[in-house]
Amino acid sequence: MLARTTDISEEASTDWPLRPRSRPLLTLGEMVVLLIALLIPACGGLYRADYYSRFVQGTCTITSGDVTSVLHHVKNGSDYTTYAPSFFYIVSAPGTSGVDSSGYDGPDHTTFYDETEAQDIVNQYAVGTTTTCSYNPANPHEAFLIFQGYSQERAWSVFWWSLFLTGLAQIMITLLIWYLWVRKLMILHERGQLTRGHVIRHETRQSKNGRYTVSIIEYTGITILKHPIRGELTGPGYLSLDRPIPVCYDPYRPTRARRGDRPTRLHICGAIIATLLLLVSISAFACLFTFLLV
């Protein structure tokens, strides 16, 4: 019954507000913002490919070498240690008297489960040895004795995987919140009708953090076809029984309702800002991997 559509004559005869006008600019803006949020982290691989393509070959003089170890803690208690060769060296870069740097390989770093494998690599580079290396001419401090580079194939692979995974996260989280929260506030602000509900009972529910109590608020309203409806909302558990609660509902879809008065523009702006912050957070988290780690 609630899903039935009406024509303009029905709407006019019931004296309800007309359906919201079409907002092509709002829809276009939503698509543009989401596209930007998807493309920025997806371009991380392309950025890294361009960045590492600027490295040039030079020479480095080894000043010291050692094996570093990292202890990895696992929840089930099966801790393990990885080992990696580590060197300090002086990069011979034009226009400098030598730049101190450290590390071994990059942009990917090799680790071993056997310390002797890492020690074998350290033994290959005696102190005082001059060997070829690759460094960033804009920042010679960033140099690698072994440079794997960053291929275009890898960059595009990161692009498509990031676009898929980030898009999946944005659709499941950001878009869901946008349409269930922000759009709901917009609709109720424009055509919401006010009624009065009452707390009819309390319920105890279970969550991961324990048990909690909610208040069940019952409200009645009228659809655009003059049909009475009855709905329920949840509220905080401290509300007393039979307490009157203002409810704002959508006459075109009475199950779309909220506790309280009709939303103001301030409510809508706050919801938009909160959703955009969530969008930025997800994109920033994705950028952490595509720009720095992948």
Rank of each mutant, 00 (worst) to 15 (best):
A271T: 04
I272C: 10
N209A: 13
R256W: 10
Q170F: 09
G77T: 09
I40L: 09
E117F: 11
V127H: 04
D66Q: 14
R21L: 13
E10S: 14
G77P: 06
G237W: 01
A257T: 01
G45V: 02
P107Y: 01
P107T: 05
Q206M: 12
A126R: 12
T166F: 03
R265G: 15
T213S: 09
A12T: 12
H202M: 04
Q57W: 05
G98R: 05
S162E: 05
I216R: 05
G106V: 03
D114S: 07
L225G: 07
T61N: 02
T195P: 01
T82G: 01
T110Q: 10
R154M: 09
I187Y: 00
H141R: 14
T223S: 08
R48G: 01
P94F: 10
S240Q: 14
I177A: 06
K226L: 09
V214M: 08
A84N: 06
I146W: 03
A274Y: 04
H109P: 03
F289N: 01
G103V: 00
K75V: 11
Y83N: 02
R211W: 06
T130R: 07
S157F: 13
L239D: 01
Q148K: 12
P263W: 00
T129R: 12
L34C: 10
R253V: 10
S134M: 11
R183K: 15
D120M: 10
T275I: 11
T204W: 05
H141G: 14
A37Q: 02
L293H: 11
I200E: 08
R21P: 05
R183Q: 13
T82F: 02
F289D: 02
E153L: 13
T129Q: 14
T110G: 01
T264Y: 06
F164I: 15
V280E: 01
C60D: 03
N76L: 07
T82I: 07
D105Y: 06
T116K: 11
K208E: 13
L288I: 10
E232T: 14
P41Q: 02
L26F: 15
P137D: 08
R253Q: 11
V182P: 00
F144M: 04
I216T: 06
A12C: 09
V182G: 03
V158L: 05
R48V: 03
A3G: 07
L165G: 06
D250H: 03
H73I: 14
P17H: 09
T223R: 05
Q152E: 14
G106C: 09
E142R: 06
L168P: 00
G235R: 00
T131M: 03
H202D: 00
A169R: 00
Y212C: 05
I173N: 00
K226Q: 12
I217P: 01
C269H: 13
A284Y: 11
F147C: 06
A37L: 12
D7N: 12
N209K: 15
T63C: 04
T264G: 13
V214I: 15
A37V: 05
G192W: 02
R183W: 07
R262I: 15
Q170R: 02
Q152F: 12
P137C: 08
N76G: 07
I222T: 15
D108F: 15
S13G: 15
R154H: 09
V32T: 13
L279A: 05
L278H: 01
L276I: 12
R262Q: 13
E203P: 00
V70K: 14
L46V: 13
G221S: 04
I216K: 03
G235C: 01
C60L: 05
I282E: 01
Q148M: 10
T166Q: 06
D15M: 12
L225Q: 11
